[in-house]
Design a binder for these strands. Structure first.
Lengths: 126, 126, 126, 126
DNA sequence: GTGGTCTAGACCACT
DNA sequence: GTGGTCTAGACCACT
């Protein structure tokens, strides 16, 4: 289910976090679903368990998953809410940035080419 | 030269700042140019001198204009540099925001519609 | 906590800014601490609220405090960093000034007497 | 009369300017004195004449020397005034810097150690 | 209650 | 004339 690229500059635990969040938003991971155990995922991806642990504990503190000691990690009931709230906040930050930039005579074209530049980076990661 | 809309929600002094900065970026106001005096602009726009003063002193602390007490306010030599630097910084903030949003499954379409929404606000100000 | 001298040539709002910054550097005001409200401090010091407002909004734009409309003003997390950065920058400006002056045959003695002259001014403010 | 150190990081023309100014302030070079010709000084110091030319033309634009085409360069009548004015200006800049720094809780000791650090650099140049 | 904006009007130093 | 500071007092949105 999870894929990791050791060679990309991006920290592995961040790659894991991003994928978990993506799956939650897409509905692939639903509330209550059990996450793969730290050790199992570690051997599966040939990765140090500590790295998985770091990803899981960040997702926990964000409220996306919760851990039940002795039983495992589960997708939180409010996981989707948390992530959508984050998305809304970032979109409203985007709005005020665009507002400031349009004050500075930045054109629609410049803004879109800036967006496309970033999105193109992401494609290469596939 | 300057226009002010008391009814718009936007504070008057901010409207003035934005216009001065726009004129500098467009080259309408050039380095060394003398700004209209606080009192003259106040009577011209039917606005309290304190409000002009507030706009001018913010532009001063930003480095866009400088004031010589007893002589007047003038466009700073580095005005254009200051404003372009600001623009570059905001564009790089935009990039990292878009990066985060693309992690959260936001589509190119959503991003562009967000931009257009903001740009449309600006048009109504015309 | 704050003291103001209306008779000193120095603007009241500057006196306030200096005191807030001093308290932050000394650790008397810590990050997150709530500042006295504009009106309360104004009546306490027998000063117009607008003057406090001016001091607070300059401290805000410097990043020393931040204001939450409807709730109050608070010492910023990065207040100490901001002020220490300022200090470092001024010390490096001092260095290059001294370098230029030593080129112009200014003696160590002259430089120190210049410093002492200024420091003596400050003592009288106590 | 003039000494140049090609190995020091400092540009040669700046070294020349500094020495001329020092000699003027010390009274070694007096108003009306004829400066060594560009070519003669160049061969004497084993330096490209353009470098001497650059030093001389900066001293000219500063008002320290003036050139009479076909006759040579001479120490200006107002050379000492110009340099003393420069010195006074820098000293007053020093004052306001020290004022700002004392606002930031910088001690007399720190200021003096900063001065001594710079003066020590100069000694090594001897 | 809080901060933010604005008006009206005064006085200052400086050119 | 110029900008800079300050007072007195009003109204707003927000918590």
């Amino acid at each position: 289910m999870f894929i990791v690229d050791v060679m990309s500059g991006k920290p592995i635990y961040e790659q894991l976090i991003d994928q978990v969040e993506k799956f939650v938003l897409l509905g692939v991971l639903k509330e209550g679903d059990r996450m793969p155990s730290v050790r199992k995922l570690a051997t599966e991806l040939s990765i140090n368990p500590n790295t998985i642990q770091k990803a899981y504990s960040e997702l926990d503190s964000k409220g996306v998953i919760y851990s039940v000691p002795g039983r495992g990690c589960f997708v939180s009931d409010k996981a989707k809410d948390v992530l959508n709230k984050f998305k809304r906040e970032k979109l409203s930050e985007l709005e005020s940035l665009v507002r400031e930039l349009s004050m500075a005579n930045v054109t629609r074209k410049e803004l879109i080419s800036c967006i496309d530049k970033v999105l193109k980076e992401g494609e290469n990661e596939k």
